[in-house]
Structures are given as structure tokens and as C-alpha cells.
């Protein structure tokens, strides 16, 4: 009888340990679940591109009209960039650099963006994420195209950025989009738009 109780206790202990291991594994899985890229972290920093000149025809005159090519993030897969996140990031960037038409300013130019490709390597310590976005900037008045190009942005993420692979990939993806938008913004002052 006594032996049987001891056996039962041992079995309970083993069951508790197994439950604990499962709970730990579930917690680890949840902690490493992929989350989508955050728009605020895809907006370039103030030093990454020049601000719009107040004399420029583009100054506070651009509106984001169409964004496509994004993908929603599946928590069990890798972090992606959705259309809404990319659109929000573009609006945030245009606003930060004084290109976004505000509620009291008439928009003269429409920006369309399409995420052509997002290369996200996995299974390495150092990650390089490449994003290819097509930007099309049009005059709203006559639909003439001011800029139409596929711009590439790259970013490198290392173990110093994040130890957890899914976090490192998300951060590097955001940095890649940030670099891409910064390159787009840096082209705007060079556009010939006189008379538009």
C-alpha cells in the first residue's frame, strides 16, 4: 500500500514536470511568434533624407493614393509588411519630411507604391533583407508621371540587434523598408517639376 502511494507520487511529479516543460515550450513558441512590421519603425529618421524645401512644388502637396503588393503576417511564419502598414509608413515619412498634403492643403501629386518583392533570409545569424518597391508619382491635374521607378532598400541585422531570430528578422525588415523610403525621399528634390 505504502509503495503504491510512493509510485503515485512519483507519477504525479513526472506529470507536473512534463506539464511544466510543455508550458515552457508554449511560452517560448508564443514569444517567438512573428509580428507584422510596425509603420512607425519604417519611417526614416530625420537625418536619412533631406526635408522638402518650402519653395518646392512638392512641399506638402503629396497624397498616398494606392499601395499594393504587401502581405499579412502569419504569426506562425515570418514577419511581413502589409499594405496598410506600408501606406501608414509612407504617410508618416511624407509628413516627417514635409511632403504630405495636410487637411488644409490641396494635394497636387498622387503617390502609388507597390511592394514588388521582399527577400527575407532565414536560418542565419546575420540577415540581409532586400525590399524592392515601385514608386509612381503622378500629377493629379494631368496624370503626367514625375517618377516611376523600382527602388531597392537593404538592411543587415545581426545578433547584436536581437537574439531571437523572428525579432531580428522583423527589425531588419523594418530597416530595409526604412532605407527604401529614405532613398525614395532623397530622389524627390532632384525631380524636374517646374510648371506642373
Amino acid at each position: 500500500m505504502h509503495n503504491s502511494c510512493g509510485e503515485k507520487d512519483r507519477m504525479w511529479s513526472v506529470a507536473r514536470i512534463i506539464r511544466f516543460i510543455f508550458a515552457l515550450a508554449a511560452a517560448a513558441l508564443l514569444a517567438s511568434c512573428a509580428t507584422g512590421a510596425a509603420p512607425s519603425r519604417m519611417v526614416p529618421n530625420a537625418m536619412d533624407a533631406p526635408r522638402a524645401d518650402a519653395a518646392s512644388p512638392l512641399y506638402q502637396r503629396i497624397v498616398v493614393t494606392q499601395v499594393g503588393g504587401g502581405e499579412e503576417t502569419n504569426p506562425l511564419m515570418v514577419s511581413k509588411v502589409g499594405n496598410r502598414e506600408l501606406a501608414d509608413a509612407l504617410r508618416g515619412a511624407l509628413e516627417r519630411f514635409d511632403y504630405l498634403a495636410g487637411p488644409d492643403r490641396r494635394a497636387d501629386f498622387a503617390l502609388e507604391a507597390f511592394l514588388v518583392d521582399l527577400k527575407q533570409p532565414q536560418g542565419a545569424y546575420t540577415l540581409i533583407v532586400d525590399s524592392h518597391i515601385r514608386y509612381k508619382l503622378l500629377s493629379i491635374k494631368d496624370r503626367s508621371v514625375l517618377l516611376d521607378d523600382v527602388i531597392t532598400g537593404s538592411a543587415k541585422g545581426t545578433l547584436n540587434d536581437a537574439l531571437v531570430g523572428s525579432t531580428r528578422l522583423r527589425m531588419t525588415t523594418e530597416a530595409s523598408i526604412r532605407a527604401n523610403i529614405a532613398e525614395f525621399l532623397s530622389r524627390l528634390p532632384r525631380l524636374e517639376i517646374s510648371g506642373k
Partner: peptide, 25 residues
């Protein structure tokens, strides 16, 4: 292939109208 080889091979996406993006790595 998103599961086995997400980075290599071709991908294409409709861009609206009759426009498509085609890429290969």
C-alpha cells in the same frame, strides 16, 4: 516556395489592370 525555399526562384504579383511584377532571385 514560402515553406521550403522562400527566397529563391520566381514570384509574380498582379499590380492591377493587366500589369504584373515578375521577380527572380
Amino acid at each position: 516556395d514560402p515553406a521550403w525555399s522562400p527566397n529563391y526562384g520566381y514570384r509574380d504579383k498582379p499590380m492591377g489592370g493587366n500589369e504584373f511584377s515578375v521577380s527572380f532571385t
